[in-house]
Design a protein around this nucleic acid. Sequence first.
DNA 1: AATATAACCGGACCGCAGTCCGTTTAGCAT
DNA 2: ATGCTAAACGGACTGCGGTCCGGTTATATT
Lengths: 210, 210
Amino acid sequence: MSLIPIRPGAQSGGGRPAAPAAESGRRDAARNRELLLCAAREIVEESSVDALTMDRLAQRAGVGKGTIFRRFGSRAGLMMALLSDAEAEFQGRFMFGPPPVGPGAPPLERLIAVGSARIAWTLEFGELARAADASAYNRFDVPPAVLWQRHLEMLLREAGVTADPWLMASALGAALEPELLLHSVGVHGIAPERLAETWRELVTRVVGGP
Amino acid sequence: MSLIPIRPGAQSGGGRPAAPAAESGRRDAARNRELLLCAAREIVEESSVDALTMDRLAQRAGVGKGTIFRRFGSRAGLMMALLSDAEAEFQGRFMFGPPPVGPGAPPLERLIAVGSARIAWTLEFGELARAADASAYNRFDVPPAVLWQRHLEMLLREAGVTADPWLMASALGAALEPELLLHSVGVHGIAPERLAETWRELVTRVVGGP
DNA sequence: AATATAACCGGACCGCAGTCCGTTTAGCAT
DNA sequence: ATGCTAAACGGACTGCGGTCCGGTTATATT
């Protein structure tokens, strides 16, 4: 299984433009892309994710608004691009990294570890992740989400959970959604360790551990 | 424990107007309220939830846009009002209805039954429920959501799950979110019975069933 | 170097949710 | 009946995400 690209060519957000797939020659396009990502990071850094409006970004980057949408398809697409590095790093960890998050540990241990890691990751990048959720239906079908779910599915299978692994993975994955985690911590003041502990409990019981 | 009101006085959606709490005298207000709900149902019926824009509704009901926001606080608030009856009926079922959804059956059976019922309910009213989710953080803190989660929490406790029931209920509740259920059925063509079956499996394992 | 052309650029434009504030009116007190 | 006042009304206005299309420019061809 090879790495699933983080930035799908077409964000499919109704965008017709067939996607500027890879680096498609035009150097100004690439330049503007970097310009935009850079300006976007600046805005997020010095204000907040919500402060990143498309008009503001366009003005800041000295670029037309149309250009943003051509490159990224939508606001969510832009956020995904911003998340790309963090997401790739996380994918690398659970697919190729050292145990217990990476391969080499028993499946239950991996489930527990990867859940904790995901919780920590979400608390760090969650605001971006939230903004990157294409609010539409296809939120779950975006490549990184699919890869993540497949991974949970595989771990569950290895751990001996045979019943409908796809749905089981969806259900468990739902417990790690940014919206929920950020809400628990931000609004209800739950400590991150308690989140991890509950995940451990949940997944242990599900795989029928001791 | 008494019934939690479905239509919170203030939707707290940034609305300053202190909420038109109960029926506050003014008859024209009540009239307009019904007018709006009625027109809203018509639009949803003859088109779709997405077709219900505030401008359209205002025009259709022959009422100013400001009036809508005064009464319902936000689009999400309006959707909640539209859902109110269905939600109340469902609350009645799991709180006072006949077993196994209502009280009287063993907790695990109740968990299984109420989950199935919720799935069916969501597939019927899910579009509205989705639109009723205040997209903000407080989505989980709206009265019906709180009541629902408390109920799950109680059932879990009764079933002998001692570890952090609040979070456990959140996690399990996440598996029943409209967004996820509608996506599974609508996009991936999962049969509702499989959803119910997976819920059964999940919750059975969590409470340490056979 | 000159030309052709496909891709790219930018900002005017659209529909939307939500806000604001001057105007109207229902209900009460006299 | 009449006048008072708090409440409700309504539509112009804002800022947002997203689209469109005429003008511009980088690259390939000759």
